[in-house]
Amino acid sequence: MDNFFELNFWEMMLRTTISFLVLLILARLLGKKQLSQLTFFHYITGISIGSISAEIASQKETPFMDGLVALIWWTVLTLLMSYLSLKSPKIRTWIDDEPTIIIKDGEISTKSLKSSRLHMDDLLMMLREQSIFSIQDVHYAVLETNGELSVMKKVGMQEATKQDVKVPLTLPLFMPSEIISDGKIVKKNLDELDLTEDWVMKKLRKHGVDSVSDVFYAQLQTNGSLHISLRKNGI
């Protein structure tokens, strides 16, 4: 009995490890779009691949090689459909559908609501998530293929830009980036930004900080300044 339990345990460990490694490789092959589950097709594919992997790892009754072949073949089919969708707009529309105009110039398209199987409560909730409480403020609302609602407000309801109020435009010098994390300098980000540790220390001294270890977090701002959070602040 003990030998049987030990054999079964190690078999499950081996199956799980191999399934994990294969799934990791396949996930890399599928790419970022699959991982982010942008459309319903990719969402279902991701669930199916995960289910097959779980079946291989946890169900002793499932032949290991059969499950592995099914997992790899499912991935191949997904890659094939993704390739075909890149080459053919018709296939892409058939797989992922296409964006649907729900609101045009403040008027709701009941036909689009019906075809999208979307009721008014859902539509109003999606508008409120974008801080829009009145449908008449909407010029266009488009239901994307990933189920999210893209909204263009009417001109009079749009937020004013710097160009609208004629404020001088200044291009950002840097992209906000992590410079210090938990008392350690993030050298990779410094190299990408073409900055040095001496530059960081000069910035810290301007804030009265003499040691990197005293800093919990520091972020480079667009204007070249550092936003610093110290350990002594109780974080």
Rank of each mutant, 00 (worst) to 15 (best):
T39P: 00
L26P: 05
K87S: 01
F40I: 08
K111T: 12
F20H: 02
Q163L: 05
R231A: 01
R128P: 03
L7T: 15
H139P: 01
G224C: 05
S229C: 03
Q34G: 07
E197T: 12
N146D: 15
Q37P: 03
G106V: 01
K111L: 07
D164P: 01
L149Y: 09
K114D: 13
A218P: 13
H42Q: 15
E61R: 06
T16I: 01
P176Y: 11
G46F: 08
I135Q: 05
D97E: 12
P176C: 02
G106H: 06
M175Q: 15
S53W: 11
G224Y: 03
M120V: 04
D122F: 14
Q221N: 14
M157N: 15
T161V: 09
Q136G: 01
S150T: 12
L204C: 05
I91E: 12
D210E: 10
D137W: 02
S58C: 07
L29M: 10
L123A: 08
I185S: 08
L193G: 05
L226C: 04
L84N: 10
K206G: 13
K33L: 06
A57M: 09
K166Y: 09
R231C: 03
E11G: 00
L124M: 13
S177T: 10
V69S: 12
S181F: 00
Y43I: 00
T161Y: 08
S225F: 02
G50I: 04
L38P: 08
L190Y: 06
L149W: 10
A54Y: 10
P176R: 08
E129P: 04
Q163I: 12
E197G: 11
Q130I: 01
S213G: 07
S85R: 07
Q136L: 02
S181P: 05
V186C: 03
A141E: 03
I72R: 02
N8I: 14
Y217K: 09
K104T: 13
L7H: 07
S88W: 12
G46Y: 04
R15M: 04
T100R: 09
L190V: 00
M126S: 07
D137E: 15
M152D: 01
W10F: 12
S225K: 04
N146W: 08
L7W: 15
D122K: 10
K162N: 13
S19H: 11
I95R: 08
H139R: 07
